[in-house]
Amino acid sequence: MNASADRPPTWTFLTHHARVLVEIARDPEARVRDLAGHIGITERGVQKILADLHQAGYLTRERVGRRNHYSLNLDAHFRHPTEAGLPVRLLIDLFVDRDRRHPT
């Protein structure tokens, strides 16, 4: 058996911030608990990421009853200088099937 198959990966291509954006595109009414479970991080980690994304203008939240509804700003551009001219819509389109994506 290959020893590397027994170990979890130590890095991934997508950041947790990107994963939160993708999961919200799939389900804008997802609970923090659900997001944390899908991504594999703590609920507190998700809350911090949501605050970061909200502050940077990538998402807005609206309280609907006891839940939050998130809307993504798909025209916002990536932050890193090498991708700064590209909208986050490209990431969402790459990872979220248009038929499964909720309008945001």
Rank of each mutant, 00 (worst) to 15 (best):
M1L: 07
M1K: 08
N2C: 05
N2F: 12
N2V: 08
S4R: 09
A5C: 00
A5K: 09
A5M: 08
A5R: 08
P9S: 09
P9K: 13
T10S: 13
T10N: 08
T10Q: 12
T10V: 12
W11P: 02
T12N: 07
F13C: 07
H16S: 01
H16L: 03
H17C: 05
A18Y: 03
A18P: 00
A18W: 05
R19P: 00
R19M: 02
V20R: 03
V20W: 01
V20H: 00
L21C: 00
A25D: 02
A25E: 06
A25G: 05
R26K: 09
R26C: 06
D27E: 09
D27I: 03
P28I: 05
A30R: 03
A30D: 01
R31I: 02
V32Q: 06
V32W: 02
V32N: 06
L35F: 00
L35Q: 04
L35K: 02
A36R: 01
G37W: 00
G37K: 05
I39G: 03
I41K: 00
I41Y: 01
E43L: 01
G45P: 00
Q47L: 04
Q47A: 03
Q47W: 03
I49C: 01
I49N: 01
I49V: 08
L50C: 05
A51E: 09
A51W: 06
D52Q: 10
L53A: 02
L53S: 04
H54Q: 13
Q55V: 07
Y58M: 06
Y58F: 14
L59T: 03
T60F: 05
R61A: 11
E62D: 08
R63M: 12
R63W: 10
G65A: 04
R66D: 06
R67P: 00
N68V: 07
N68A: 12
H69W: 08
H69A: 14
Y70D: 03
Y70R: 06
S71Y: 12
S71L: 12
L72I: 09
L72Q: 05
N73A: 13
N73S: 14
L74A: 14
L74Q: 14
D75E: 15
H77L: 14
H77D: 13
F78H: 15
H80Q: 15
P81A: 12
T82K: 15
E83A: 14
E83I: 14
G85V: 11
L86V: 15
L86C: 12
P87M: 09
V88P: 08
V88D: 06
V88I: 15
R89V: 13
L91G: 08
I92H: 06
I92D: 02
D93P: 11
L94P: 07
L94V: 13
V96T: 08
V96F: 09
V96A: 05
V96L: 07
D97G: 04
D97C: 07
D97A: 09
D97T: 07
D97R: 11
D97Q: 08
D97Y: 07
R98L: 13
R98V: 11
R98E: 14
R98N: 13
D99V: 14
R101T: 07
H102I: 12
H102E: 14
P103H: 13
